[in-house]
């Protein structure tokens, strides 16, 4: 594996995380508990799709096969998508949406700060923009976690369930393989081992302030980095890819 090939895969993974989470958040348009929150959620969705476009454009360039970001976003088979399993999980109730955001944005908050130092200039530039956005996403998730955890009996119960149910998808965030190892040596990728403790602290502090309980350690789901997903991704893609697949010659 050359550095360039590894960077391609690495960038594709980051692009897919943004694309699929952006898709899930887009589904919430006109469905939030009140209009201000509708705007907040679609705003995060918009940041995600913007980041997906930047990452996938960079991936397409690295691949060097004349493809565009749209080709990568819309024309791959399911097994060639590498987004983390947590990004494709259904929105569920508002508590699930918020907990998914909590786990992920805490991770991305730490991750993108580190990626700003990447020796790949494009990745560093995308990271710089992303880390500003993610700061807001993290704040948003944290505020809601505290308010709902320490709100009513019902909101506490729902938050606690969501914290437990999504926990098994968090282990994957810190997995690394040969792609990461190659790129850590080259100063391009972020070493995730050092982020794990910081992430756990961020989550613990927030969960405690929210008067909620941390989930017990459990079996962690895995597979997305090899293209093995939950059943949800296929449905996301059949919607996402619909027009591009049905009218392959059309330019939109």
């Amino acid at each position: 594996m050359t550095t360039k090939e590894a960077t391609f895969t690495y960038t594709l993974r980051l692009g897919d995380d943004a694309l699929i989470l952006g898709h899930r958040l887009s589904e919430l348009c006109s469905k939030a508990p009140f209009i201000e929150e509708d705007l907040a959620l679609t705003n995060i969705a918009l940041d995600m799709i913007g980041r997906a476009q930047a990452m996938l454009s960079h991936a397409a360039e690295l691949e060097g096969k004349g493809k565009t970001a749209d080709d990568l976003a819309y024309r791959r088979p399911e097994i060639n998508y590498y987004n983390h399993l947590i990004t494709e999980q259904p929105n569920g109730d508002f508590a699930h949406t918020i907990v998914r955001q909590l786990y992920l944005s805490a991770f991305e908050f730490l991750f993108y700060c580190e990626l700003e130092k990447s020796k790949d200039e494009t990745l560093a530039a995308i990271a710089k923009k992303a880390s500003k956005e993610v700061q807001y996403h993290w704040q948003h998730a944290m505020d809601w976690t505290i308010r709902l955890g320490d709100g009513t009996g019902e909101s506490k119960r729902r938050m606690q369930i969501a914290l437990y149910e999504l926990w098994m998808y968090t282990g994957e965030l810190f997995e690394m393989d040969a792609v990461d190892e190659t790129l850590i040596k080259a100063g391009i990728a972020v070493d995730l081992t050092s982020l794990k403790t910081q992430w756990l602290n961020l989550i613990k502090n927030t969960v405690t302030e929210a008067t909620l309980l941390m989930p017990d350690d459990t079996y962690m789901q895995s597979g997305s980095r090899k293209g093995i997903h939950s059943e949800h991704l296929g449905h996301i893609l059949s919607e996402l890819q619909y027009l591009q697949r049905a009218y392959p010659d059309a330019i939109w």
Partner: peptide, 18 residues
């Protein structure tokens, strides 16, 4: 939004609805 045929059109539509 979820079926917008390009990343660009998806972003424009999201921004518009916002």
């Amino acid at each position: 939004i979820t079926r917008a045929p390009s990343l660009r059109s998806k972003q424009i539509l999201l921004a518009k609805i916002q």
